[in-house]
C-alpha cells in the first residue's frame, strides 16, 4: 500500500479540487474516484468568510485526507507563511509546496522551493514538493527533509502527458525508495498508465477530471473519474522481468486490495 510520511493511503490517485463545474460535481468525483487524498488551497476571503466556510465543510464531510497547497506563491517567505496558515486551518503537517517561478507556465522556482522545503521541514511540516524532473533538485529536496517528491511530467494544466520519459525513468531509478507522485501534466488515462508503468507510486489529477465532459459520470471514451481511469490502466502490466520495458515495479492507481 502507498505510504506517505508513515500514513498508509488506500489509493494511488490523488485528486485536485479546482475548476469543477459545481461543488456537487466535485463531491461526486471524489466519492466515485475513491481517492484517499484531495488537494485544497487558501485564498483571501472577502468580509464574512462564508464561501471558504462552505467549501471547508464540504471537504470535511467527504472524509478524505486533505493535502493543502501553497498554490500561487512566488517566493520563499510567501510560501512559508501560506503553509503555516494552511496548517492553522486544516490542522495537518502535510503541505504540497508550490513556489511558482513563472506566472505564465507556472514552472516551479526550484531554488526557492528547496529553501522553503528546508524551512518547513525544520518546523515540523511534512513537505510534498511540486518540482520538475531534475535529479539534482530532487536530491536537494531530499536533503532538505522531504520524504516524498511530486515531479511534473509536463507543465501544469497542459495535459501534454509525460514529455521526458528518459528523465522520469532516471528519477525512478535514482530514488527507488522515495514515493514519487506525478503532480502535473496528465491529461489522459494513457498518460497515467505510462507513468505508473514507469514505476511511479501515484498520480495527482485535476484538470483532466474536472474538465471532463461529466467529471463524475463515466461515459466511455471520456476522461472522468475512477471507472475510465481504471479501465485504461488496470490490470497494470506485471510482466516477467525479462520482458519489462519500463519498470521492475509497475503499479496500478486502483485502491490496493488486501
Amino acid at each position: 500500500m502507498l505510504e506517505l510520511y508513515g500514513t498508509e493511503i488506500p489509493s494511488r490517485l490523488l485528486l485536485g479540487t479546482a475548476r469543477y463545474p459545481s461543488p456537487a460535481m466535485l463531491a461526486e468525483s471524489v466519492k466515485r474516484s475513491q481517492t484517499g487524498i484531495v488537494t485544497v488551497s487558501l485564498r483571501r476571503e472577502t468580509a464574512g468568510g462564508r464561501n471558504g466556510g462552505a467549501f471547508f465543510e464540504m471537504i470535511r464531510e467527504l472524509g478524505v485526507r486533505v493535502l493543502p497547497n501553497t498554490a500561487g506563491c512566488h517566493g520563499v517567505s510567501e510560501a512559508v507563511l501560506t503553509a503555516k496558515m494552511a496548517r492553522e486551518v486544516f490542522r495537518t503537517n502535510w503541505i504540497k509546496l508550490e513556489v511558482i517561478g513563472n506566472h505564465d507556465t507556472l514552472q516551479p522556482d526550484v531554488f526557492a522551493l528547496v529553501e522553503a522545503a528546508r524551512i518547513l521541514s525544520d518546523e515540523g511540516f511534512e513537505v510534498f514538493p511540486y518540482t520538475t524532473d531534475d535529479l539534482i533538485v530532487a536530491e536537494r529536496l531530499l536533503d532538505a527533509g522531504c520524504q516524498v517528491l511530486m515531479p511534473w511530467c509536463a507543465p501544469i494544466g497542459t495535459a501534454a502527458g509525460p514529455l521526458n520519459l528518459s528523465a522520469l525513468r532516471s528519477m525512478r531509478a535514482h530514488f527507488p525508495d522515495v514515493p514519487l507522485i506525478v503532480d502535473a501534466g496528465i491529461g489522459r488515462p494513457s498518460h497515467a498508465a505510462i507513468v505508473m508503468e514507469l514505476g511511479f507510486d501515484a498520480v495527482l489529477l485535476n484538470t483532466a477530471v474536472a474538465g471532463a465532459g461529466d467529471p463524475a459520470a463515466m461515459p466511455a471514451g471520456r476522461l472522468s473519474a475512477r471507472a475510465c481511469w481504471s479501465r485504461a490502466i488496470w490490470p497494470c502490466p506485471r510482466r516477467p522481468s525479462s520482458e519489462r520495458r519500463f519498470s521492475r515495479d509497475a503499479r496500478s492507481i486502483l485502491p490496493d486490495r488486501r
Partner: peptide
C-alpha cells in the same frame, strides 16, 4: 493583515 480561508485547489 491577511485573512485566508479554504478554497478549491489542484
Amino acid at each position: 493583515i491577511e485573512i485566508l480561508t479554504p478554497m478549491q485547489g489542484g
